[in-house]
Simulated assay, not measured.
Amino acid sequence: MNLENSRDYYGKVLGGSADLRTDACCTAEAPAPHIRTALAAVHPEVKARYYGCGLVVPEAIEGAHILDLGSGSGQDAYILAQLVGEKGSVTGVDATPEQLAVANDHLEWHRERFGYAKSNVRFVEGDIEKLDQLGLEEASFDVIVSNCVINLVADKAAVFAAAHKLLKPGGELYFSDVYADRRVPAHLLNDPVLHGECLSGALYWGDFDRLAKEAGFADPRLVTDRPLGINDAEAAAKLEGIAFHSATFRLFKLDGLEPQCEDYGQAVRYKGTIAGAERAFDLDEHHHIEAGRMFAVCGNTWKMLAETRLAEHFEFFGDFSRHFGVFPGCGTNSPFAGAADVTVSAESSGCC
């Protein structure tokens, strides 16, 4: 039923983003200059049918092969196509024929606008709950993105599991979606407006954390978040008592990530070489890493930087030969009575 609701709402009910009744499926973040430049080169009709809730443009993606889950009219795909360059590629998957028609109608227009000899974008019609049926090669994508779409599907566990299989080792699922501070009552799932507005299908954040880890993404990292306003009185009445947030997470496909942030005395120094982030790199909400400055990290963060496409942009200090317990500032070092509290300067270290 969720898939039928989505196809109808985004294909027939909504004529464009101006028809939305809440701000859940809207992007409030101000894009960085290089993203604004790329957005300016996207066809107006594609932009008019955009319903995303975040910026799904991770850093350091030149030459990357990207899969866009729920690509819609193609705005994110066409932005990413410019940033990966001609040697990279973007594959969009969507289940709404009307949205795919808009995306496909402008393939050649964008190829010419980007100055590419051949298009590096393709769109596939399909259900993101059934990615294994679309002929996509396992371990073939560097990055998977999704923008306010996973909330619309019923079997969210299947999406996370399939994404993990499709990513290369060290690859990343970088996505924005809507989350609730508690489980939304089941009877609201079939409300066409609440579902189409990305609210009734929103995951309780605790369920998301569990599903992500069960799929193999051991340490989900929150990148950005914002509270959502529900300006439609009827929708607000049905959802009274539930708080919603739009949030962007990054999930890395890495072996050996630990349940807690463990301290091995490691540190990194950012070289300032990522385009658009020359002064500082934000791995997540707790890791603002200034260029040229030593930055203490836990073992998990070390792996996220050292065993992914980000490695060339950092210098690494230390190893895993000596363990100092839980990383300072990220929990208690000991559960036992009388254990000393440990504090750390925010200027010298990052909390994992």
Rank of each mutant, 00 (worst) to 15 (best):
K303H: 10
D284R: 03
A296D: 11
A296N: 09
L305H: 08
A291R: 09
H288D: 07
H288Y: 05
G299C: 13
A306S: 15
G299T: 07
A311Y: 08
H288R: 10
A296G: 13
T301F: 07
A291Q: 03
H286T: 10
D282N: 12
D284A: 08
R293T: 12
E312C: 15
E307P: 06
R309T: 14
W302S: 04
H287F: 03
I289T: 03
W302C: 07
W302Y: 15
L283K: 00
R293Y: 02
M304D: 01
T301K: 01
H286V: 04
G292L: 09
T301R: 07
C298E: 04
D284V: 07
L310A: 13
E307F: 13
L305S: 06
G292Y: 10
K303A: 12
M304E: 11
E285L: 12
R309N: 14
A306P: 04
W302V: 02
M294G: 02
A296W: 06
K303V: 02
H287E: 05
C298D: 11
C298S: 12
M294F: 07
N300L: 05
R293Q: 13
D282E: 08
D282K: 09
L283S: 00
H288W: 08
V297P: 01
W302A: 01
A296F: 13
C298R: 00
L310F: 15
L310I: 14
M304V: 03
E290D: 07
L310Q: 11
C298W: 01
H288P: 02
N300W: 05
H287I: 04
L283F: 14
W302Q: 10
A311K: 15
R309S: 15
A306I: 09
D284F: 03
T301A: 13
W302N: 04
R309L: 14
M304C: 14
A311S: 14
N300D: 04
L310H: 14
C298K: 00
G292R: 07
A306Q: 12
L310P: 09
R309K: 15
I289Y: 02
E307D: 15
D282T: 05
I289N: 00
H288L: 03
G292Q: 08
W302L: 07
E307L: 15
H288F: 08
G299R: 11
M294L: 09
T301M: 13
M294W: 03
R293I: 10
T308G: 11
M294C: 00
E285A: 12
D284S: 12
R293D: 07
R293G: 05
I289F: 06
A296E: 07
R309V: 15
R309D: 15
F295K: 02
E285T: 08
G299Q: 08
E307W: 09
C298Y: 00
A306G: 13
H288V: 06
